[in-house]
Design a protein around this nucleic acid. Structure first.
Lengths: 365, 365
DNA sequence: AGCGCTTACGAAAGCGCTTACGTAGACTAG
DNA sequence: CTAGTCTACGTAAGCGCTTTCGTAAGCGCT
């Protein structure tokens, strides 16, 4: 088993292979200008010696930096940790390093992190998480990233459309529509939305989908109570309290992500409101615990891990003239938290919930 | 607002401040040998220009690398993502970068990642997650880390004791004991353990705690059914199936982490076995969803985020002669998944569960 | 044979920083 | 007043790599 000595340098490999430093470098980088025979020998020696190039020297000397910077809201949010998992998988396959930093869903902090990553000369920047409804911030971020790309950096984002770079776009609008249609099909007419902070584009997009569905069914938006709180579990708790207080006729709550849905369920449980018999609840994202809640959560499945993989794969391709876009697709997963709307005089035996999937697929397929 | 130009170098800062390159370097690094007056001027200029040192050049030139490598099983496991969150917090405060890689709970992969990080010349290595009951692997890892430290690297681990480095040690044994005592107090006498893979030290330690508690109460281990499966939710599912099949008298299941507990609950629900009325279930870790499950999960709370913070803080201190150890402490959190053991002839109205905490504390305190 | 062209390789110049080492000038000591 | 000691700073030598440039050899062509 090759044990890399204290500091094994390329020159050692080169000498051992009987070639010059330059040739060894070229051989290992797969550049041409080296005969296949010599290249093979160099690789062989490097392998035997367990040589790993010093990335600092390599980058300093002008090679592309092999580290990818990933900006997320918080890694300990399941949505982002799954994305990060996907990114790390691909990075490992490609021999890249992943640096993770937090934006804390704060536009200014995000911009700072972006600048920091650029100053650190990472080769690839990935930004995950909603954009902001703030023209100044978005413009600055856009300019910063454009300049970074002009200097050879590669960028991809997940879930934002206004940055002029390759993007993986979750089906927010379509998912919102599917959620609303599902509830409408179940007969709900008094629907409330536990929405995240106004100003997040993800929130706006999902909400737009909900509105569209209502419109198409000829319902006015007056029937829709929208409550904006934090885009977190605690925000969901607060939102549910507000909905119960201000919109007592509500029979279904759409939480715009699973974290909020968990908060909503928690509040409903505290108020002893049976779900789904008296109140249906839906979430969005399908984080892995959604299937294990009680009741298990009807939600929109987004392929978070794949989104992470896709984002890095996009960034790895040579840059195209126009920004690429990849849609994620989505899937309505109906579980136990939704049921037909209660009739004004509640039926003694409520119908069982429509039920297509009670268990989450294995986490390690 | 300072916008770092294409490539702003230290020499520019030095010239602008009217000093030499060396002086500028010393001033920014806070070395002495520079008058406070000059140092202040240099810092001032650097600030104005938005100068950020090129970390590759800095590291190559012999300065300590400012990146910390974090090895976890999987970031998308809540246990590890919370730890990672803590590490990232401290890193941000200290201006460090965090590189995350996966070991996949595979000893060989972990060793590879370790070597890779060392080859990448990170300055600090943090390893989170159980150790392995494999003398060869542990010895190799130990040797690798010792050599890394000999060359000035800093290391801290979370949850492993055999590596001869600073360690943050979760209260696995004590937690296991507390769990078992809780169930014994509730009158359970036929207890089963859904244990993770044999060979993980975390599993062994927690199990040891359970055994100790049984012994102290004068119970033989024959009353304890231990089933080893994967240390994951799916492992918990399988374990529960086996327990139901092979140990039908069981009235309480100790899952050695929350992931397994979630799997256990899932299987019990599928079998329509009421929890906690007919079967009590406990977990370990208190991941943030534990409070939101149905029933909410009685478990041992470990301060994962703090563990991450502590680990990096330890590594940041100058190395001590003997490895430091920090215990995490633990807290038994009793929720709704545990209740008194059912009497052989089940009482018509089972007692309500002991109940001290039904809600998880806010995620962003 | 002589010319240009290509191919395979080596020599050497940096990349942007840190840090020995050298050297003024300002002291104290004898 | 000279020798020794600090202190504050500049000069220059790398850190380990990539890459430009130069060159010798091999090829086909006139």
């Amino acid at each position: 088993m090759p044990r890399p000595g204290p500091r094994l340098r390329l020159i050692e490999v080169a000498e051992r292979a009987g070639v010059s430093l330059a040739t060894a470098s070229r051989a290992l980088a797969g550049r041409d200008g080296v005969s296949e025979e010599v290249a093979a020998r160099v690789r062989q020696v490097a392998q035997e010696l367990g040589y790993v190039a010093n990335p600092y020297a390599r980058t300093l000397a002008g090679g592309a930096s092999s580290t990818v910077g990933l900006v997320v809201h918080q890694v300990d949010d399941p949505y982002f940790s799954e994305i990060a998992g996907g990114v790390i998988q691909v990075a490992a396959e490609e021999g890249l390093l992943v640096q993770i930093c937090h934006s804390g869903r704060d536009p200014d902090a995000e911009l700072r992190q972006l600048r920091h990553l650029i100053a650190q000369r990472v080769g690839i920047i990935l930004v995950a998480g909603s954009g902001y409804d703030d023209a100044r911030i978005e413009a600055e971020a856009r300019a910063e990233l454009a300049e970074f790309q002009r200097q050879g950096g590669r960028v991809a984002v997940i879930g934002r459309h206004a940055l002029g770079v390759d993007a993986v776009l979750p089906d927010n609008e379509a998912g919102g529509r599917a959620l609303a249609e599902h509830l409408l099909d179940l007969g709900h007419r008094h629907i409330a939305v536990a929405a995240g902070t106004a100003g997040l584009t993800t929130v706006a997009d999902r909400l737009a989908g909900v509105s569209t569905a209502l419109h198409q069914r000829g319902l006015s938006l007056d029937d829709l109570a929208v409550v904006h709180c934090d885009f977190t579990r605690d925000g969901g708790r607060v939102a549910a309290e507000l909905i119960l207080r201000d919109h007592p006729r509500t029979t279904a709550i759409i939480a715009l992500n699973d974290a909020m849905a968990i908060g909503v369920l928690s509040t409903l449980r505290a108020h002893r409101i049976p779900v789904p018999e008296r109140m249906s609840v839906v979430g969005f994202d399908d984080v892995s615990v959604a299937a294990d809640l009680a009741p298990s959560l009807t939600t929109i499945r987004l392929p978070m891990t794949d989104m992470g993989r896709m984002a890095l794969s996009l960034a790895l391709k040579p840059r195209s003239t126009r920004p690429r876009r990849r849609s994620t697709g989505h899937l309505l997963v109906v579980r136990d938290s939704t049921a037909p709307a209660p009739t004004p005089t509640p039926s003694p035996t409520p119908l069982p919930a429509t039920h297509t999937d009670n268990h989450h697929p294995a986490t390690t397929p």
